[in-house]
Design a protein around this nucleic acid. Structure first.
Length: 284
DNA sequence: ACTATGTCCTGCGAGC
DNA sequence: TGCTCGCAGGACATAG
């Protein structure tokens, strides 16, 4: 579901409401799929931790946690024991297609497919809900997923990402090891604004194509963030609010409808198993 | 090292 | 009304 603008919107909303709060207890559901780290470790690291920051990294939500690791009294006299010491840890959340991270009042009804509830000192709850269970929860100590941040990458660093790649440019844009955060909607929208067909081999794009693609991606992502992301079927932010960028989509989800520039019907093809939309006249 | 394909899940709407 | 089918914002494992 969520791509960079949606995750950014969620992370900003969460930051406003939970920074400084302390996770008092964690409830984990019985379904193991959403857990990338062992359940015991997630519960252990989260419980008692203070949320120092919430940030988006690619499509991940990263909670920076400050926690005090307590050494059991029995171990204190041993020479190897360090005693109580602060530790930096991160709670990393990937929402997959249908994941939601919500701030709730404890009296709010528990949604179906709730896999985690973190009770906060303030009395509120952080809830992770994910019907398809393609999302993932983990803890890390220095999270670094690789790939370049699309909003930060310079043109100089952007151009070589596609050198020698025979895969369609659409697939390359979805490859999180190259750029982290671009997904199906924003790949299609960026390529439309660039005038490049999604089926073109990545390596076939000339320097001037890439010099247009680079700002097009950033423009689309920035505009989408401004509008709170795209709600196609069920995306909502941490307050349960929908986004509005879907009203600005020029090709995504518009198969058979007329191109807003040239009135040619928008085409849909499947690339790497994903629906891809383009204008056959505007995109070469 | 790169690339194409299948798989993980549930829910929804279209079509019959 | 009820059924089946295809499709969905993502990422990985696997095989070539």
């Amino acid at each position: 579901m969520p791509e960079l603008p949606e995750v950014e919107t969620i992370a900003r909303g969460l930051a406003k409401r939970v920074i400084g709060d302390v996770i008092e207890s964690v409830w984990l559901g019985s379904k193991p799929e959403p857990l990338k780290s062992p359940a015991k470790e997630i519960a252990k690291v989260l419980e008692g931790s203070r949320i120092a920051d919430v940030q988006r990294v690619g499509k991940h939500i990263v909670f920076d946690l400050d926690r005090v690791v307590r050494t059991p009294p029995s171990a204190k006299k041993k020479s190897s024991a360090k005693g109580d010491h602060p530790e930096k840890a991160q709670w990393v959340v990937h929402l997959g297609m249908t994941g939601r991270m919500l701030v709730n009042d404890p009296t709010d009804e528990l949604a179906k497919h709730t896999h985690l509830v973190a009770t906060l000192k303030s009395g509120r709850e952080l809830r992770f809900v994910d019907p398809r269970r393609l999302g993932r929860l983990s803890v890390a100590y220095g999270f670094e997923p690789g790939g370049k941040e699309p909003l930060d990458v310079s043109l100089q660093d952007f151009i070589p990402l596609f050198r020698g790649r025979k895969t369609p440019i659409k697939s390359a844009l979805l490859n999180q090891k190259l750029l982290r955060g671009v997904g199906n909607i924003y790949a299609d929208e960026s390529l439309f604004r660039t005038g490049v067909r999604p089926t073109r081999k990545a390596a076939s794009l000339k320097k001037d194509d890439l010099a247009r693609l680079h700002p097009a991606i950033q423009e689309v992502l920035r505009e989408a963030i401004k509008l709170g992301g795209s709600t196609v079927s069920d995306y909502v932010d941490s307050d349960g609010e929908e986004g509005f960028f879907q009203l600005q989509h020029r090709v995504y989800g518009r198969e058979g409808e007329l191109c807003l520039v040239c009135r040619t019907p928008i085409k849909r093809v499947v690339i790497a198993g994903r629906s891809s939309h383009y204008c056959p006249k505007c995109q070469k």
